[in-house]
Amino acid sequence: MAQMTMIQAITDALSTELKNDEDVLVFGEDVGQNGGVFRATEGLQEEFGEERVFDTPLAESGIIGMSVGLSTQGFRPVPEIQFFGFVYEAMDAVSGQAARMRYRSGGRWHAPITIRSPFGGGVHTPELHADSLEGLMAQQPGLKVVIPSNPYDAKGLLISSIRENDPVIFLEHMKLYRSFREEVPEEEFTVDLGKANVKREGKDITLIAYGAMVHSSLKAAEELEKENIDAEVIDLRTVQPIDVDTIIESVMKTNRAVVVQEAQRQAGIAASIVSEIQERAILHLEAPVLRVTAPDTVYPFSQAEEVWLPNYEDIIEKAKQSINF
């Protein structure tokens, strides 16, 4: 076992799959010699050559469009979108093309593409760098959307994503890239897509989160414990499809839930989870299911970030509101 940061675990996963499968290709802006702006692809071009790990021109739509073409020839492209807000330039290629190859060809073609991209707030990058756009992606049938919260999951989920036969959006929260290390096996392993992880067991309330908000939720749970509130914390790991079974099982036990997302409140993953809970477990609820989210504004400038982003105190407040309902 090795101690790895999340970025190291991601590089390790890419390296593992480049070794395992010669059809895997890694490319994007600055991913070659430079090793990526966050160093996610560091050393990969040197090890696997310029044919399999390469720089593209600065052209997001072209990068994803070309990935679709490559995938029709049996390749497994793993393109990088340098910051996830830049995916708007490639939205047609992602949602109009890659996501629909299987559907519109009646199953004759499919697009096993894994689009990796950094996103997320708290590192003083403003709008379009930090935006949480997973809700937009999750609304597109044909795509899967994966968001790891720790180095171990990042490696296992990324390997699973690359092996997946449908297009996967793999979102890497920038704040988690180097915030901590943990033990990650050096050998290959997978974490199944579509399976949530109960990070902390509890009996009084369920906190449902993903990405960086898993850590805020765990911190909130620790604080709540001091006040004898025993919170269960679920890390979704995949937001499309959502592991509704794990959520319902937990809510049936705790009878209360708070859904936490870093994204704005409107539409989104949290709203979808609230709906699932009320449809499947309303008679088990002791209180309305509450949400902790960012406000419905454009992702703000650096000085406003700490106030704008949801934090563990917001989670504690909502959890207490639920308990005291």
Binding site: S61, G62, I64, G65, M66, S67, V68, G69, L70, S71, T72, Q73, G74, F75, P77, A93, Q97
Partner: peptide
């Protein structure tokens, strides 16, 4: 871009 990807392959 699809055709370009095919050509690259």
């Amino acid at each position: 871009p699809h055709a370009v990807g095919v050509a690259l392959a």
